[in-house]
Amino acid sequence: MASVIKQRQALGEQVSLFSQVKLEHLVAGISGGVSSTLILHPLDIIKIRFAVNDGRMHAAPRYNGIANAFLTIYRQEGFRGLYQGVTPNVWGAGASWGLYFMFYGSLKNWVKKGDASANLSAGTHLALASAAGFTTLLITNPLWVVKTRLCLQYGGIKKYNGMIDCLVKIYQADGFRGYYKGLVPGIFGVSHGAVQFMVYEEMKKAHSKYYSQPITAKLSTIEYLTFAAISKLIAAATTYPYQVIRARLQNQHYSYTGLGECVKLTWTHEGWRGFYKGLGTNLVRVVPATAITFVTYENVSHWLLKHSENKLRS
């Protein structure tokens, strides 16, 4: 495939963005997102409940750490309690990772003019990841609103009976705008994915340069795990506050007039620490989740792309 593109370039043909869209990236991204979500969803439940607990809502459950939260939810709500909201989470994670990898891969190959072996700068990786993240967010934000609300059903009171019921009731109560609550902090959160992908790509590029390998060379599982974990730690530590604000804006138990009020009240009542509630749980969850996602993605995408190239040759 790469040789065909180079031949076209030699003949002066332009490489279109559409020609660089590969469904292999979509399938591989969905596989990674779904796998990590099914394994680690209980930690997502705990992180969200920590994030929205501002100390002023008496109805909100309070936990003394991750282990206590896990056991308390299990005792009070059973195994199903630990997997509340898993359906929109699986849909959201699968769609988000699949679309993100597809958009990012397409944009990256387009900028490279179809030459997969070409190197890009850190700034270019950051810009492309931001564009991919923003596009993905616009498509998937309704799923994240639903996931947050289902994860915040506690105390034996259920307002929503599953994902579809939640989607219908949000529309009935707030109209189409209800699906985009928390969108503004979500847009700021695009920087999270952008930072993560930039660091991940730069580490892979440095590794390839050090070992004199082509940038397209398949790495070992340990190398993918290491690069994914480090990039996620850096991204999570630098951009986490937006997740707290987004969760609070999407919380059905409390209403803010907007982003400004949410930020102001969080700072007034909790200080800077309020913006990092649930960070520990988040790191425990997202680092292995990202490692699972990226390892699954890299291996599945390499296999699918190689299979596609073999079919074209035969």
Rank of each mutant, 00 (worst) to 15 (best):
L40Y: 04
P42D: 08
I45D: 12
I45N: 15
I46P: 00
K47Y: 03
K47Q: 13
R49P: 01
A51H: 08
G55N: 06
R56L: 13
M57A: 13
A59W: 04
R62N: 07
Y63M: 13
N64D: 14
G65E: 06
I66F: 12
I66P: 00
N68K: 11
N68A: 12
I73V: 13
I73D: 06
Y74W: 14
Y74S: 13
R75C: 06
Q76D: 14
E77Q: 14
E77R: 09
F79W: 14
G81T: 01
G85L: 06
V86Q: 10
V90E: 08
W91L: 15
G92F: 05
A93D: 03
W97V: 12
L99A: 10
F101G: 00
G105C: 09
S106G: 12
S106M: 15
K108S: 13
V111N: 04
K112N: 09
A116H: 09
S121E: 03
G123M: 09
G123T: 02
T124A: 11
H125I: 01
L126G: 04
A127L: 15
S130M: 14
T135R: 12
T136K: 12
L138C: 14
L138P: 00
T140M: 11
T140K: 10
N141S: 10
P142R: 02
P142M: 04
L143D: 05
W144C: 00
V145A: 09
K147G: 13
T148P: 00
L152W: 02
Y154V: 13
Y154I: 08
G156S: 05
K159A: 06
G162I: 01
M163T: 14
I164E: 02
I164C: 03
L167I: 11
K169F: 05
D174S: 14
R177C: 03
R177D: 04
R177A: 14
G182S: 05
G182L: 03
L183V: 04
